[in-house]
Amino acid sequence: MASAGLLVIVASAAAWINGLPWAHWTLALGLLWLLTVLRGWFGDAIGESEGGRYGRNIDRSYRWSMSWFIFSEIMFFGAFFGALFYARTLATPELGSLDSKLLWPGFTATWPNAGPAGLVETFKPMGPWPIPTLNTAVLLTSGVTLTIAHHALRAAHRARAAFWLFLTIALGFIFLGFQSFEYFHAYQELNLKLTSGMYGSTFFLLTGFHGFHVMMGATMLSVILIRILKGHFTPEHHFGFEGAAWYWHFVDVVWLGLYVVVYWL
């Protein structure tokens, strides 16, 4: 059922890009279908867990599954970091080499650049201050508050765990708010867009997909917060919390790499 929903979503997105008038409706239906399936699916898993039906092997399978999922996310971001490395370290020096001077005599092999063909509008790169640096502080702080919430849950201090988890979620949405303002600033004041050559495409893909992962992580943690308030989890058995925490810390680490490579180097 989930696969059928995904098929409808992808097919509708392709149809929408090609201008078919009904595609946005089927895309919305596909999303609604998928969310309904996931709610029932995850609800069954939560009910089985709270009903004491999960043993050691099931717990181990969930841990391995979450580990492999995060590994796939590492490879996902590795591809975009690899594209940025290729553009900066290999392609740009090659375009500025003596062999390319006949084709693009005015091109200078610096990063960022507007490309050798003069097809990209002039733009200014995004610097590390103030929003990216503030967002780095926000995410690092959220990692600390999440760790405090985890220790509180392990100590059976449910109210304290809920408070620090709520603070973590709030910091995640503050991060997204800052990033939205950063994109507005990029488009309106720096003329930096997704179409701004290789720099623009890698900047928005890396930071945009990371922002999407922050939103997904905040959604996961929100579900965990609701479960804590409902009395789920015990100090000994709370992998739902741990799995979401793994994901959130992964998002923190990716942002540190982005902050250094995209904004400083």
Score class of each variant (00 low, 15 high):
L7V: 13
W16E: 12
P21H: 08
H24F: 13
A28G: 13
G30K: 00
I46Q: 11
G51Q: 03
R53A: 13
Y54P: 02
G55E: 00
R56G: 06
Y62C: 03
S65M: 15
M66Y: 13
W68P: 04
M75F: 15
F81N: 10
P93W: 02
E94H: 09
G96Y: 00
D99P: 00
P105K: 05
F107N: 06
T108H: 14
T108D: 10
N113M: 07
N113C: 02
P116H: 03
A117H: 10
G118P: 15
V120I: 14
E121K: 15
F123V: 08
P128S: 07
P130Y: 08
I131M: 12
P132G: 05
P132V: 08
T133C: 05
T136G: 09
T136L: 10
S142N: 05
G143E: 06
T145H: 03
H151I: 13
H151P: 06
A152P: 06
R154D: 11
R154C: 13
A156I: 11
A156Q: 15
H157Q: 15
H157N: 13
R160N: 09
A161T: 01
A162E: 15
L176G: 07
Q179F: 08
F181C: 02
E182V: 02
F184G: 00
Q188R: 10
Q188F: 08
Q188Y: 10
N191R: 04
L192E: 03
G208S: 08
G211K: 01
M216H: 07
M216Q: 14
L221F: 15
I226P: 01
G231T: 09
G231I: 03
H232D: 11
F233L: 08
F233S: 07
P235W: 01
P235H: 06
H237S: 14
H238R: 10
F239L: 09
E242N: 12
W246P: 02
Y247N: 02
W248C: 02
W248G: 03
V251Q: 02
D252V: 05
W255C: 02
L256M: 11
Y259A: 03
W264G: 01
